[in-house]
Simulated assay, not measured.
Amino acid sequence: MRLRDLTSGDLTYRELSNYVRGLSPSSATRTALNDGAPEPTGEQVMLADLFDAVAILDWHFTLANSDDKKAKPKKPKPYPRWWAQQPKQRHSSQRVAKLEDARRRKREREQAIAEGRIA
């Protein structure tokens, strides 16, 4: 297959797309199309999903068989998928205001301790 076949009509864009998708996830072409980040293999995706499924099943089993009087176990965090785009955390104005207020109270508390008003 040659790229000149694309202009001559012997190769369609759909066929070219299928050829590129058929390349190995670690190929240079697929990595370049993914902004330089390597793509995960099918095995990596399946292992991450399997890890999550086993962790959830274990959590459900523990939750069902734990004493009602004791604290319930926390839901497990999903396996970190390095290939998935992480959502960017944006600080809302409320969150920023709460953080600044907490820092102000901490400074006041430290000052009161230094002055001996608080033991």
Rank of each mutant, 00 (worst) to 15 (best):
E15I: 00
P78W: 09
L47R: 12
S66Y: 11
D35Y: 14
A48N: 01
Y79I: 03
S17P: 08
Q85M: 08
K74E: 10
N34Y: 03
K75G: 08
Q86P: 00
A84Q: 07
G36A: 03
D49M: 03
L11V: 01
T29C: 12
N34C: 11
T29K: 08
N65T: 15
S24D: 04
D68H: 14
I56H: 08
S66V: 12
G22D: 15
L16Q: 05
V20R: 07
V54M: 15
T62E: 15
A48T: 00
L11A: 03
R21V: 07
A71W: 07
L23K: 03
P73D: 09
E39M: 05
M46H: 11
A28R: 13
G36R: 09
E43A: 09
P76C: 04
N34V: 01
D67K: 04
I56Q: 14
K69I: 03
A55I: 10
A84I: 00
K69Y: 06
A71T: 11
L57H: 11
T41F: 10
A53D: 14
F51Y: 10
E15P: 03
T12D: 03
V45Y: 06
V54S: 14
S24R: 01
T12G: 00
D35I: 13
D10L: 15
D10Y: 13
T41N: 12
T31C: 11
W59T: 06
T12K: 05
P25W: 02
P87L: 02
D35C: 13
G42F: 04
V54D: 14
F51K: 12
G42I: 05
L47M: 04
N65G: 14
E39A: 04
I56M: 06
Y13S: 15
D67T: 06
S26T: 03
G36Y: 06
S66E: 13
P76M: 00
L50K: 10
D58Q: 15
K69P: 01
S24A: 04
A71I: 08
R30F: 00
F51L: 09
P78Q: 10
D49W: 06
N34E: 06
T29P: 12
L16V: 10
T12R: 01
S24T: 03
A84Y: 07
P40E: 05
D49E: 04
R14K: 05
D67F: 02
K77D: 06
T41K: 13
N18V: 07
A53N: 11
W59C: 04
A28Q: 10
